[in-house]
Design a protein around this nucleic acid. Structure first.
Lengths: 355, 355
DNA sequence: GTTAGCAGTCCTATGATTAGAGTGCTAACA
DNA sequence: TGTTAGCACTCTAATCATAGGACTGCTAAC
């Protein structure tokens, strides 16, 4: 059997209708709803075919049809193909005014959740490709060293290290200079064993301390995949959709958003899928048990890889019921990505706004 | 009518039973459950009295009784009076090993939620009483200044400021020295107009910049009541209790935990109640619509004021259904406070662990 | 003061019934 | 051959009535 034009129209109408109402849709509805001007009987025949082909499902004998995962997939793919560039309501992101990366991310994810009415998440960018601007050391107490790492894009990281010796101010200054000499301008990937060795050697009898510092620096930058911060918003939107309101399922989902561990795993899986399906603005849709959301069978996930210039790359995503408004979500995400590109694109010098 | 010994036993038995089951409890249950060896008829008479006195309520004619807010209050007060010092299972807090304040707080609140099976929150300590150890300035870019504030207790704060001039390295160093000279050792309350003026004057033609820096410092430390970070855990535990599972209520509550704004307000109200009810280890119980939780009529809130030495004071709390296991929660909280005291008490030198 | 017993109340669970929505099939039609 | 009308059938969800159970309150007896 073939999926001819008429079947496609009917299929899409069924799905659209189901997305809106959440109720199984029957033949009579389609007959009235679509511009096909066919009787419900004809529609019934077609629907029977569509069911046989696996695009729609009948929850029980006397109910209408609902889309299967295959049906959703077809629908989503066809949306993605329409290169419909109509500009969505411009999300008035005050991205330029935000002065902390954390704040920017929190704002972004909040907006996304508000706009879509689903749960949204964003992963803090990986720092491993980011270059070190400079490093500062100081002594906040006995046998303590405060390490401050300033990365390209004005990302600041700090940590208090415990060391084995007490240093005088001059030594601290000297060590700071040594480290800056060796590491300024390097990204994580540039930090080879040789570089480390050279720096350590130059530290003379403070080699132990310098080693500690370097280890800490590497840790801070490597804080990639697994330890990366994740910000979320709108987890409780999940409770708005009856099919997810079942207490157990809802609790599990919302917990996942609270605990973040599951989300981290999810993000790392999505990251590795990156560009698997090239083009499409890097947008990905996972339906039902597809890919990284196998344990969220009743949900769909829409993700995109964002970039804030300076090589700050991360993942942003929306999780909602399978019958989410894909069109809107995809539009919103696309829009958001474009805004970010415009604001943080390589040639823009609006690189303030991050610290 | 008087609340005699027998009535008290019956009242407590009713409440205990209701806390366990969540179902209204009838006279026959009490008759069998308590060691009073009275017939259900007698209990019925007493219950009738208790109802008249306002301690218990009958949801409908042919149902058992449930505690009223007044009943809960009586019960909680009587628990608080029992100075029962039995040691709870020692929460194996790895407080000593934690090396970031943020991590410590997150661990604490997570433990609390896991132990109690309710939702828990903790507010980051106020910094206004905390003294400045030292300040560091550096230039991460054009017209940018990175301000790093190191407070007693090794709390680190950083922010990138935009300034109107470009400084050379020497000037930055000089300004750093000026600021440290004037502000090292001061807490927020010590920073008077005079101090600021002196520092600004000494900055010569860079007064504008120094003003910006000082303003930022004050903001960072003042980030008290309203802007203070709040960490939460176990929000979804709320879904475990049928009386809160009503989708709307649950969504509102969980949202509150997600958004944090409401919680901030709550914390600041609790803080102002502080020591209102002296003794009792600073533990407070708010039942139903009492005090700061007027919009959470079906919940109770247990709070305590914690201190991590160094004047780092904040609020920790548990929110659950009105029929929460007060005894356990109070015990757990008490325990926790004692552990914190032991670990961070004034005389302890385990003051590492925070940064 | 305590208790047994009984009538009365109200909730809840259960089952039966019904209305409605929707299908599949057949037969007629263009 | 594709489309449609119509009918029998199925299954769900809502409604209703009924019965059972859990209590209470009251009265009368101990």
């Amino acid at each position: 059997m073939e999926l001819d034009a008429r079947k496609i129209i009917i299929l899409k109408t069924i799905i659209k209708n189901y997305l809106e109402t959440g109720e199984p849709v029957g033949s009579r509805t389609i007959s009235k709803y679509s511009e096909l001007n066919l009787s419900s009987a004809t529609i019934r025949n077609e629907m029977s075919d569509l069911e046989e082909m696996g695009y729609i499902i009948q929850p029980h004998t006397s109910a209408g049809r609902i889309p299967s995962d295959k049906g959703y997939r077809f629908y989503v793919d066809s949306i993605m193909k329409e290169s419909d560039d109509r500009v969505n309501e411009v999300t008035e992101l005050m991205v330029k005014k935000v002065d902390k990366l954390e704040m920017l991310l929190k704002n972004l994810v909040k907006h996304l959740a508000l706009d879509t009415n689903y749960a949204a998440l964003i992963s803090a960018p990986a720092l491993s490709e980011n270059k070190i601007k400079y490093v500062q050391l100081s002594q906040p107490g006995e046998k303590k060293l405060l390490l401050i790492l300033v990365l390209e894009g004005n990302i600041i990281k700090n940590e208090i290290l415990t060391i084995d010796e007490d240093l005088d101010m001059e030594t601290v200054l000297n060590l700071t200079i040594v480290i800056n000499n060796h590491f300024s301008g390097l990204s994580l990937n540039d930090i080879t064993g040789t570089v480390v060795k050279e720096a350590v050697n130059q530290a003379g009898r403070h080699r132990q301390t310098v080693e500690t510092v370097i280890d800490a620096m590497i840790d801070m930058m490597a804080a990639g995949e697994e330890t990366r911060d994740i910000y979320t918003s709108g987890a409780t939107n999940i409770l708005k959709y009856p099919e997810l309101t079942d207490t157990k399922k809802a609790a599990a989902l919302i917990s996942a958003f609270e605990e973040k561990d599951a989300l981290k795993k999810l993000v790392s899986e999505v990251t590795s899928d990156e560009a698997a399906d090239g083009g499409h603005n890097n947008l990905q849709v996972y339906i039902g048990g597809e890919g990284p959301i196998q344990n969220m069978k009743d949900c769909s996930l829409v993700t995109a890889n964002y970039e804030l210039g300076d090589g700050l790359r991360g993942v942003i995503g929306v999780i909602g019921p399978k019958r989410m408004d894909y069109e809107k979500v995809l539009g919103t995400m696309k829009n958001l990505m474009e805004q970010l590109d415009k604001t943080f694109g390589k040639d823009s010098d609006n690189k303030e706004g991050k610290g």
